[in-house]
Design a protein around this nucleic acid. Structure first.
Lengths: 336, 336
DNA sequence: CCGGGCTGCGAGAGCGCTCTCAGAGCAGAG
DNA sequence: CTCTGCTCTGAGAGCGCTCTCGCAGCCCGG
């Protein structure tokens, strides 16, 4: 049954092929300086024994593990089942790492001990580098690891000063396009449901809204949510209390936009005739809402891929830009 | 900057504390047979040097890695961004592994080479065990690994004979409850949109539908989808062509049910008055469809957790049941 | 025919840890 | 006071691999 203990080692292959361990190692690792007859003899021995190198032994000497950690913050788990953001990031990262033949190790800091766990694990040289997705507030861990010599890349411009390389999307540009669209289509009372103000995504999107409104004679009407559907529904109700005559709302996430739409419909407002709605994300579901959601697309999959690519570059010792910002794009559908 | 090379070893700690490597190792691993004064001297040295054990060296001798692979099949990536199934599994697995202080290594077999990659990686003793989620058709890999001595647990009753332990949900029971509900509420022409017939979930849910209908004088009206929203929309159109008078439909996944609802609405059918709709999954979104979806809840998070728990038991050498089946439950909302 | 350079292979050290085994030290019994 | 038995610590082997280094064999030019 279990052949776990009898798994062949380099030594065994070497004996069978009648060569030294070093030569087998060369063949296995594709060194060019092995003569052809010997090479094929070794190949045959490897095949026959079903030899597979022991990863721990190898990385003990090479100091590499060929795996990469992706750290998702506490909040990730909370919204996990409803929010395709993290799955898409994971998917994108995984695509790039697959191509580079690296493994993805997922870590969630959803327990209190998680934070310390991540630190221990990554500094135990378990992984060659660490990716952080969507950190809240000012997270010291990325900088800390980076200072310890661990390659690190994060999503989202870090709050506070930090020299850790990051990948982000153009929140402000996307939001401005959205608000401009609302202005150009003749809306005069444009409100916003902002995201959490301890996250860059929340902060920047609100800033974009304010920036585009600034200079027009429109005043800003703001409510704040936490990117969940429920918070969007609540915030919409609040906005309508604040200004019953508002005729448009930019919502800082698609999920919150869905919540807002539910509220608007409950209160008998027609979309977009009474109130135009624009979201941010362009999740798949948003094509299927009623009406289909006008929203700002952010390339989440690509964000994940770029994140991984940057880290691989850092690991390879190449120079990388401290910031990579991916473009966003307004997708006009029926809701505005 | 980079302190990577100067990272302290056991040896260094031992020297500083004035003891042997063995004693430091004992303290680090919490062995009780170390006298208190020495123990605290070692602790101080560990603290002072910031010592963290090298994982590779440790697992080279212990033959354990304290990490677990979760393998998602090709199709996972395809539906990843729209289907909360895999995220929930990941989340559940991760909860249990966190508690056991194990790491989660994610692998997707979405490339052609992925299959072989998984095999190499897992047999390289990179992980202590392997979890498979939602395999399609008859996948030989789980059995193969299991025969090589690698602990394996899979989701979903395996097709074909297999002795690999699995965790699944009670598809048939849930579906029968759903169809019974439709019968009891006076529906006479009950159709179904089935899932892919190369997956247990697809097969069993169709079987449940047939089983409950059997004996009543109703005939079965079947279309097949692939669990995606689009396929649900298409299948619904097909069903209405086959039987324009049908008054209820059991749809084998929530996403397909959403598609079906879209189609029904486009064709002017009222839900549930003209056609009652029941789904399967109870995804979060299904509470927010219009009307809210009556559906069969399957405990996906719990499925992931149980999956991990079973594997941990196998790894610990305990006996486990070859099958664990979690209950499903009909959740009645407005669509039926 | 000899010496220098090159290529291909093997010997052996060592990566950082765990764990067995033996021995030192001490307490208590005889 | 000796002997037994126990507890605690250290020495050392070894996990499976990579990689440096040196040497053997060969080819070529002088």
């Amino acid at each position: 049954m279990s052949q776990a203990h009898e798994r062949p080692t380099l030594e065994a292959v070497a004996r069978l092929a009648g060569v030294s361990r070093a030569t087998v190692s060369r063949v296995v690792n594709g060194s060019p300086k092995v003569a052809e007859p010997i090479r094929s003899a070794v190949r045959r021995a490897v095949e026959e024994l079903g030899y597979i190198p022991n990863a721990a032994a190898r990385s003990l000497v090479t100091q590499r593990t060929d795996s990469i950690a992706l750290v998702l913050p506490e909040s990730a788990s909370r919204v996990f089942s409803d929010d395709p953001f993290f799955p898409s990031i994971i998917h994108g990262v995984s695509q790039e790492l697959d191509a580079a033949d690296k493994q993805l190790v997922l870590m969630m800091t959803n327990t209190v001990a998680g934070y310390e766990r991540v630190e221990r694990y990554t500094t135990a040289r378990h992984v060659d580098g660490v990716l952080f997705a969507s950190t809240h507030g000012v997270d010291p861990l990325p900088g800390q690891l980076s200072r310890l010599g661990v390659p690190v890349v994060v999503t989202g411009r870090p709050l506070g000063r930090s020299t850790v390389p990051y990948v982000d999307v153009d929140h402000v540009g996307g939001v401005r396009a959205a608000v401009r669209h609302l202005l150009e289509t003749g809306h005069s009372r444009i409100a916003t449901i902002a995201g959490p103000q301890d996250m860059v995504a929340g902060i920047d999107r609100l800033a974009g809204y304010r920036a585009e409104l600034h200079g027009s004679d429109r005043r800003s009407i703001v409510a704040v949510g936490d990117f969940t559907r429920e918070s969007g529904a609540t915030a919409m109700r609040q906005l309508l209390e604040d200004d019953p005559l508002l005729d448009a709302v930019f919502v800082a996430s698609d999920l919150m936009a869905h919540g807002a739409i539910t509220t608007l419909r409950e209160l008998g407002r027609r979309i977009p005739d009474d109130v135009a709605v624009v979201g941010f994300d362009d999740f798949d579901i948003s094509r299927y809402t009623d009406p289909p959601l006008t929203t700002v697309r952010q390339p989440i999959l690509e964000l994940g891929r770029e994140l991984a690519r940057q880290l691989l570059r850092v690991i390879a010792g190449e120079d990388v830009d401290q910031a990579v910002v991916l473009p966003t794009e307004l997708v006009v559908r029926a809701s505005a």
